[in-house]
Structure formats: C-alpha cells, structure tokens
Design a protein around this nucleic acid. Structure first.
Lengths: 262, 262
DNA sequence: GCCATAGTCTCATATTATGAGAGTTATTGA
DNA sequence: TCAATAACTCTCATAATATGAGACTATGGC
C-alpha cells in the first residue's frame, strides 16, 4: 500500500530490514486501524522477538503508539510530521487566503491539490456548501488519471514524463478514457492544457469539478485548484464563468508562489 | 527529536539500520524542511551508496518526496497516514459535534487534546474568536507538565504511572511548579482531579485555558477538552461558568466515547 | 546533443538481524 | 494483596544483509 514513486519497475530491495519495518506501518489501514502483536507476528511470518523489536523501534520513533498491552495504532509522530508539512508548504501559505476571498462567488467547495509522483492529494479544502461531501479531504490520494484535479496536472507534465507514464500505465489510462494509443493520449492532454481547465464528474457523479493548474515556476506544475459544485445545479454558463474564475485564481496563486520563492 | 515513549531509559538499539533510516525523517524540521543528498551524507557520516539506499527506501514508501534532483522533503504518505488517524480516531468522531454545538456559549477557542505517552497533542480545534491564536494547532506537541490540557490529563493518570513519571522527570515537574517532592506532586494533582478542571495561562500568558478530562472508559484518561479565552476579558465568574461548561461537555464526550466502544 | 552532476551497481567483508527458548515484568481477577 | 497468566525482553550462536569503494550509467539543463 506504500506510495509508488515514478520509477515503478520493481528494483531489488536495498535495505530490506528497514523495508520490513516500514512495511509494518502499511498494515494500519482505514479498515484495520488497530493491530495486536500476535496478528502482526502471523502476518509478517517472523518470530516473536523480531516483531517486538520492530514494534519497539516504531513506537520509540512515535510512528506507532501502544493503546494497551499488545495493541498498537498509528502514533503521534505522524500528526506532528503532517503539521510540519503544512507549516513548510509554500502552497498552503499563499492559497488559503485567495480561496477564502472568493468563497461567496464559488458557492461550493474549493480544493487545493498537490502533485506527488504518481498521485494527487487534496491538501486543503474551503467549503461553503455544506451539502458537498467531496471525499477529497486532506490526505486522500487519487490516481493521476482520474478527477479534474489530476487531469489538469497530467496535462501540464513535460512530454518525456508523459511518455513514460503512458508506457507503464497504458491500462489505467485507457480505463480512464484518456486514449488507447500514445498519440491520442498526448493530444487529449494537449487539448486540456490549451483550454487551461479540466472539467470532470468521474469521482462522484453527483458533483462537477473544474480544475486549473498551479505552477511553482514557469512550466513546473505543482498542483491544482478545483471548484466543486452540485452537478444538477450548474448551467453551461455557470461552468464557463466558474472555469474563468478558477483559471484566474490559480494564476494568482502561481504568481504569489513564484514571488515567494524569488 | 523522535517522540519518547514511557520507558524512557535508553535501551540498546535492536534494529539499528532501521533506526538510522527512520532517523533520516527526523532531519526534516520546521527550520530545515528541505535536505540535499550531499548534506544528508555529511550529516549521517555514511557513504554515498548507503544514503542513496536509505533515500530510496523512504521515497518508495512515500515518507520522503523528491522535489528535484538531490533535494528531498517530507512525503505524501505522512499526509495520508494523518488522514487515517483522523478517520479512525473515535474521539474525532464524537467530539467535534459537541464542540460545534456550544461554539457561541464558549465565545473563544475550543481545543481537543489527546494523550500520547509523554506528550499531549492538540488534535482538533473549533474557533469562534479569531483573535485567539492558540499555537495549539493540530500536531503541535506539548509537555505533559505544562498547560491546562496536559495537567488535567496528568491529574487523572493512575498513581503507579505518576510515581514513575516523578522519578524520571523530577526536574521538569519542579520547573512547572508541580512540586519538588513526591507527596507534594501527588497532592497537587489530587486537588486538580477533585476539582475536575485545570485552569492555566502558562503557555501563552495573554490567554487562559480551562481543561476537563475525557475518558475512553472509566478511569482511563485519553484526552482533554479545553476552552481558551483572552485572559483580560474574563471575570472570576466567567471562569466558574466556563469551567462548569467544559466539565459537562467533556463528560458528554466521554459518555459518547464509551457508548461507541460498547 | 553534449557535459556535468546525480544516481546505481558490484562484490568482498564487516556488521547486524534473527529465532529459540529461558527469564522477567506487568496486569487481571479473586 | 497476591497468585496466575499473559505480555514482553534477553542471550547468544548463526545466518543474513548492510556497507563502502569505485566503476559505471542515466539525466537534465543548456
């Protein structure tokens, strides 16, 4: 369940004990947030002593916390590190103010998304319509090939990068309706890039998202800004005007981001 | 900078490679959120190959993300794991609704805090007074001996646990004004426990916090609810009425928590 | 399309992680 | 308060693997 990185051909594992230790963290999912020592022993097929050593290391580092004897859950270090990411993230310094300023005009939910290797994450949300449950809350990962947020990012990735993606993920790309051949894929994305906005309803069909790209530097895509509305309540004209607004807002954020790093 | 756990006598390191790998994460602080490969090599005093192996393992697991060639920052897996903690945390399922319902009566900031070994973390915040900057945002760790949030938790810890804490942290305890001998420490906390609320201004002197305990099960302290107001704007009478309210709210949260696990 | 820099690979060796089982410490319930 | 019963840790010989040096390869910026 670990996040992929871009060089996604499996290579020989270099530091395998560390990988096993880090892998323990992957056991703790939404469905199974609590693990007992015995179940971990069973799952890892390792000896009791070894598993205790792993748990000791992870608990000492704060990645796990012991709820009771023999029961573990994810630990406080993760919450602390998430805070550090939030504090250090230049995107989170400039975007929320821009998003808050136009809350009334959007009259829906605004999402700020960030691009990470093969994934896109929502990292901030500004809501004004309480009926919209985006399922895009901070930390939820999305495929790079689905959702407006992802597609506008994809559309702005450099061409060699896209070619590699196409080679390694042709199935996913076809399933997402982005084309079954490289020229079609490339041209589909080119059109989205030209338009400057991606519009989609593919994650939640009751909603419609309009996403514009955010750049850390010219040509360097770093994330996207998305406006989300109830699909049944928007007209073609609304889509046009919101698209214009999301493009302008994303440009404003990009500008401030580039200023900040200058 | 790793979180301590309770058995805080340093024991021999069991899985030392893993500890070194996990230790790389500790390099990424608020002050230095970006590290280059070269600086990590220098810092770890390890060979280039080894550091690349560590970085590869951490990046593949998503704990680090590569910003550019040779430049790393904390990665998306942390944001994802924080979300999992939020989703799985029973306290976050029941408390926010209770807190929202009394927002107007509190007319300040409400903090939900959780107890983790030697630390207390704010895990949720409900603001109604924008002037109050609590510095208690989600993920900020606080000593178990400072702040009203921590003290009410401390006051409700089992006695053997407290005795161990006193033995290992006498200095910190004295510095926090909680007593220089075990009987004084014990009785100070007993008084707070009897009162049911801790009142303090020791983190930010312009603010005053009133904290009540939250129990996961009878006698099992798991966190605290804190009301924060501007100190200059509250009378003795306000403190009394807010203290009553925070005690009642925390009891309500505890009740729902115990129901949920029943 | 070149060149500098970043990153990877190989392999012999030193280091360390591992498991079995004995030993120790906590917790629970009477 | 005290057994009884887990839960956890330690020891040590051995198997496994992490490490560094340096040659090699890939990448991306111009």
């Amino acid at each position: 369940m670990a996040a992929d990185n871009l060089s996604d051909f499996s290579r020989p594992e270099a530091v395998s004990t560390s990988n096993r230790v880090l892998g323990v963290i992957d056991l703790f999912t939404e469905e199974e947030p609590i693990w007992t020592t015995d179940r971990i022993i069973e799952r890892l097929q390792a000896s009791r002593a070894t598993v205790y050593r792993y748990l000791q290391a992870l608990t000492a580092a704060g990645f796990l916390s012991q709820l009771a004897r023999g029961a573990y859950a994810l630990g406080p270090r993760i919450i602390e590190l998430d805070r550090q990411i939030r504090i250090a993230d230049p995107l989170l310094r400039v975007a929320p103010a821009v998003m808050a300023a136009q809350r009334d005009k959007v009259a829906g939910t605004q999402l700020l998304c960030r691009y990470y290797g093969l994934r896109v994450f929502s990292i901030f949300e500004d809501r004004s319509d309480p009926r919209i449950e985006t399922s895009f809350d901070r930390g939820r990962p999305f495929s790079l090939f689905r959702s407006s947020a992802s597609r506008i990012i994809l559309a702005n990735l450099p061409a060699p990068h896209l070619r590699r993606l196409f080679l390694n993920h042709a199935g996913e790309i076809a399933a997402a309706g982005l084309g079954t051949t490289w020229p079609v894929f490339r041209d589909t994305l080119k059109a989205i890039r030209k338009r400057g906005v991606a519009v989609a309803s593919d994650i939640d069909t009751a909603l419609i998202g309009m996403a514009a790209p955010i750049f850390a530097a010219p040509e360097i895509i770093t994330g996207s800004l998305v406006f989300v509305r109830l699909r049944a309540e928007v007209t073609e004209r609304d889509i046009d005007s919101l698209s214009g607004l999301v493009i302008d807002s994303a440009k404003l954020i990009s500008g401030r981001l580039e200023e900040a790093s200058a």
